[in-house]
Computed example of a mutant assay.
Amino acid sequence: MNSRDGKDLPGLDLDRLAAWLADARPDLLAGPLTARLIAGGRSNLTYEISDGSSAWIVRRPPLGHVLATAHDMSREYRVMTALADTDVPVPATYALCEDPEILGAPFYLMERVVGTPYRTAAELTAVGADRTRTISAGMVDALADLHTVDPADVGLADFGRPSGFLARQVHRWKKQLDASYSRDLPGAHELYDMLAAHQPPQSPDGIVHGDYRLDNVLVDSSDRVVAVIDWEMATLGDPLTDVALLLLYQRLGELGVTGVGDVAFAPGFLTETELLDRYAERSGRDLAHFGFYLGLAAFKLVAILEGIHYRFLQGQTVGSGFESVGAGVEPLLRTGIAALQENNR
């Protein structure tokens, strides 16, 4: 979707944006703005804007967001700004607007990074096994580099509450799952009880991305990871939760959730053992209790998928593909229980 005056794009008034930028960053714009919507929906809205010679990205909350959630924008902006001088590839940040009067919600402006967010095994298969191996290795290295950053060194010591992080995660996802029950899931009670009773000592505190997977990194034509994006879930906590969630995302296809999680099937993609070995070596983190983290990741995805399944049953979803989401819940529960029973990689 494209617009010359902003009126055709929901949530973006180009005249008001240009007027604000003329005051906040008068060095940026060299002409009238045009824009196109890159991503929309329930997540944050992403637009590409251009003055005819340069281009940038604008991020703002979904339409209808209330001011109380405006903190999301400042968190995304803050963590990327803080990571700018580290080994973690992030877009440059240019301006943050916390005044909802400009676009109806807080927003920020960042660099437009040219790169591909690979989403499917078919896309990777098309580039070949050697390149796929390079891409998947780069994805792991970027995550390990993130997890070696000391939050205090980049001004993020107060970015979250890492103490008690694992316990809060267990109870948070239990609460969310309780709100979405539409059927008997005995495995959910078993998995929760195991998670509550067998929490290991936390891995050393670090920056947690919160939603790390291959389509949340941009890869350039040389197969380098040039940007990690979508930081809306970022916080301080136990970084091994990122690693476990990444693995579970990649298993969703084989667990019966269609349309997602199949990148690991592409020839050349790192195996789980290769991925974990590479991560452990680069990050220096101990994966001895990784079974717990896999169990927690499974519980988190169960809560998310069961919520989607519940909304589908209530007629609250829009589009196709939702009818199969619930089929992945019980296999995920079995995966989580088995991981905790084995309590290893």
Rank of each mutant, 00 (worst) to 15 (best):
K7H: 11
D8W: 00
L9M: 02
P10M: 00
D13E: 06
D15N: 04
L17Y: 01
A19C: 02
P26M: 05
P26R: 08
T34G: 00
A35I: 12
L37H: 07
I38G: 08
I38M: 14
L45H: 08
L45E: 02
E48P: 00
D51L: 08
G52N: 12
G52D: 11
S54F: 04
A55K: 14
I57C: 12
V58D: 05
R59N: 12
V66L: 14
A68G: 15
T69A: 14
T69K: 11
T69L: 13
T69N: 13
E76Q: 15
Y77E: 08
Y77D: 03
R78V: 03
T81E: 11
A84H: 11
V88F: 08
V90I: 09
A92D: 13
L96F: 08
L96M: 06
D99R: 04
D99P: 05
I102D: 08
L103S: 02
A105N: 06
L109H: 07
V114H: 11
Y118R: 08
R119C: 06
L124K: 10
V127E: 02
T134C: 04
M139N: 11
V140D: 05
A142W: 03
H147C: 07
V149H: 09
D150P: 00
D153E: 14
V154F: 10
V154R: 09
L156Q: 01
L156E: 01
A167Y: 04
W173I: 13
A179K: 14
S182P: 00
A188W: 08
D193C: 04
P200A: 11
Q202K: 02
I207N: 01
I207S: 03
G210K: 09
D211C: 09
Y212G: 13
Y212N: 09
Y212S: 10
D215S: 09
D220G: 11
D220K: 10
S221V: 15
S221I: 11
V228L: 14
T235Q: 01
L236M: 09
L236K: 01
D238I: 15
T241W: 04
T241D: 01
D242N: 10
L247S: 12
G253R: 06
G253V: 01
E254H: 07
L255H: 12
L255A: 11
V257C: 12
G259D: 09
V263Y: 01
L270N: 07
L270R: 12
E274K: 02
L275T: 15
D277W: 03
D277T: 14
A288H: 06
A288I: 05
F290M: 09
Y293H: 14
A303L: 01
E306A: 08
I308N: 02
Y310G: 00
R311W: 04
S324C: 00
P331E: 05
L332F: 08
L332A: 08
L333V: 12
R334L: 12
I337W: 02
A338F: 01
A339K: 10
L340P: 07
L340T: 12
E342N: 15
R345D: 03
R345F: 10
